[in-house]
Design a protein around this nucleic acid. Structure first.
Length: 513
DNA sequence: TTCCGACAGTGGGGTCGCAAT
DNA sequence: ATTGCGACCCCACTATCGGAA
């Protein structure tokens, strides 16, 4: 199959807003692909590379390359070139990689180049990724969409499922089972504003569990063999000897557990997220990193135990099994409430959890199965929200559907000398209407135009929600906001009434030390 | 007919490893 | 030794389609 077919279908998928049409287009190309093309075409149309990330971004791609006048590249040739590119490492590798990517681009037409750039940078924005590709695959193969999705979730990706389906038809899906050692996509949580709201939404009995601010892990144990995977199913076993040791202590030989890894201080209080993340990111000298920042696994779910698959059981039953397998300190703290009438108990538990220094709680229905790969309505996270009134210092032009709109705001707090210190940026929380309005308003306030956006007179006050303060080497106050988002503009306030760096630091003692 | 679940898009900061400077 | 880039951790929020109610 020629690459131009894939590029053309991607363009057509992007051009329609109808999901059923996107699905039909993807299915059409899957039918067209030969068995040897499938392992490449499937990930390409889901916006992924079969090789994973190649270490190539916008900067490496560099200057435009003169495109070929006629399409000739096949999907398989492209895949071979990219495999070769991935293998290049060591001194001089940057130049060699640029040479290889330039050579590939020179063989691609304009349309193919655009698709390749999107693929390499991970920005195939066609309004259809994994879920749409799975549905398209189901349509092309005659399998039930829910069966395909389940197989994809169990296989941890689309490619093996596509190959099996096209080789052996829908009955091949039965081969995809939960397997110790093979990661499955983790279940994710939705958000709720308060514990009371969360308990009310679930309606019935619920577990209120502490939410630890660390790294999500899925731990597989088969006897002495242990594997640890991240939320995106990358294997990080080698970086986490403490987790391997802890898994071997559990009271079960063949297990799949879901949990969080977090660095705790000598009093058992959580260390800042940045320290946990830095520790788990350290790959080159794990033993000294582990001495400096030891981490602990804390589990909250179990998917498999000694030959029994538990994912489809109600959470109450899975947790009973977890309690049998893991001792108290290896499990998240929790409280069980009977229902909405017990909301006060849920709020009390949240308050106590925050008092212990943790991030918040996850309120979980006791009835729901483990919805792997889904953001299930059975898990609701609740975290306290802080707010500030900050001043817009500048704004950046948006991209994609925000092209032509001033989108990303630079946010400042007042300083003692009467100026402003930038605390970070945000593009979140804006409706289309608000984007329109702020684009006009900020252009009125503009004092300088740049290629990236505008700097403005510091007059506009915006109310910002954020999750907390963290240390920063990038911003002048030495701190930045975590997960800042816009709540509303405060046209009733002048910049002189905005919050100050001083009061911000006082609100979060211990961040700067 | 209206409602709502699920997805995709739009980017944020930090930290690490690696190659280039 | 320092710098720049890319990968990958954490993530919030809105718009939209299409099936459910």
């Amino acid at each position: 199959m020629l690459l131009v077919r894939v590029a053309a279908v991607s363009r057509e998928v992007a051009a329609t807003s109808s999901r059923s049409r996107k699905k039909a287009l993807l299915a059409g190309l899957f039918r067209e692909a030969g068995p040897e093309d499938v392992p490449v075409v499937i990930p390409y149309l889901a916006g992924r590379l079969p090789q994973g990330r190649l270490g190539i971004g916008w900067k490496t791609l560099g200057a435009p390359v003169e495109p070929a006048s006629a399409p000739s590249l096949t999907v398989l040739e492209t895949d071979r070139e990219l495999t070769a590119l991935k293998a290049v490492a060591g001194p001089g590798s940057q130049a060699e990689r640029l040479r290889l990517v330039t050579s590939l681009m020179s063989r691609a037409t304009e349309e193919e180049q655009a698709f390749l750039v999107a693929l390499l940078t991970g920005e195939v924005r066609q309004g259809a990724l994994d879920a749409a590709a799975a549905d398209g695959l189901a349509e092309a193969s005659g399998a039930a969409p829910e069966d395909v999705r389940r197989a994809v979730m169990l296989a941890g990706g689309l490619a093996p499922v596509a190959e099996a389906l096209l080789a052996d038809g829908p009955t091949a899906l039965e081969r995809f089972r939960l397997t110790v050692g093979s990661p499955v996509l983790p279940m994710l949580a939705q958000s709720a504003p308060t514990a009371t709201d969360a308990v009310a939404r679930l309606g019935g009995a619920a577990a209120v569990e502490e939410k630890l601010d660390g790294i999500r892990v899925q731990v597989h144990r088969d006897g002495d063999e242990v594997h640890v995977f991240t939320r995106t199913l990358d294997e990080i076993t080698d970086r986490l000897p403490e987790v391997v040791a802890a898994a071997r202590e559990l009271r079960g030989e063949r297990l799949i557990l879901d949990g969080e890894v977090i660095a705790l201080d000598e009093h058992g209080r959580p260390r800042p997220f940045q320290e946990t993340a830095g520790r788990i990111g350290s790959r080159t000298d794990v033993s000294s990193a582990a001495r400096a920042v030891p981490v602990s696994p804390v589990f909250f779910d179990v998917l498999h135990a000694d030959g029994r698959d538990l994912m489809d059981l109600p959470f109450a039953e899975r947790h009973a099994e977890l309690a049998r397998l893991a001792p108290g300190p290896r499990r998240v703290r929790r409280a069980v409430v009977r229902g909405p009438e017990d909301a006060a108990a849920a709020e009390d538990f949240l308050a106590a959890t925050l008092e212990r220094g943790h991030e918040g709680v996850v309120v979980k229905s006791l009835d729901t199965p483990y919805s792997a790969g889904r953001r299930g309505a059975g898990w609701l996270k609740v975290k306290p929200v802080h707010t500030l009134d900050l001043v817009v210092l500048a704004a950046e032009w948006g991209s994609g559907r925000r092209a032509g709109k001033l989108s990303n705001l630079h946010l400042g707090a007042r300083t003692a000398d009467g100026g402003f210190a930038m605390l970070g940026k945000t593009f979140k929380g804006m409706t289309d209407e608000l984007l329109r309005w702020q684009t006009g308003r900020l252009r009125e306030l503009a004092v300088e135009e740049h290629s990236w956006g505008v700097t403005v007179r510091p007059e506009l006050v915006v109310e910002i929600a954020y999750d907390g303060l963290q240390r920063s080497t990038r911003y002048p106050a030495g701190v930045t906001l975590r997960f800042a988002r816009v709540l509303r503009y405060r046209e009733d306030k002048s910049a002189a009434e905005a919050d100050t760096v001083r009061t911000l630091l006082a609100t979060h003692p211990g961040v700067t030390r």
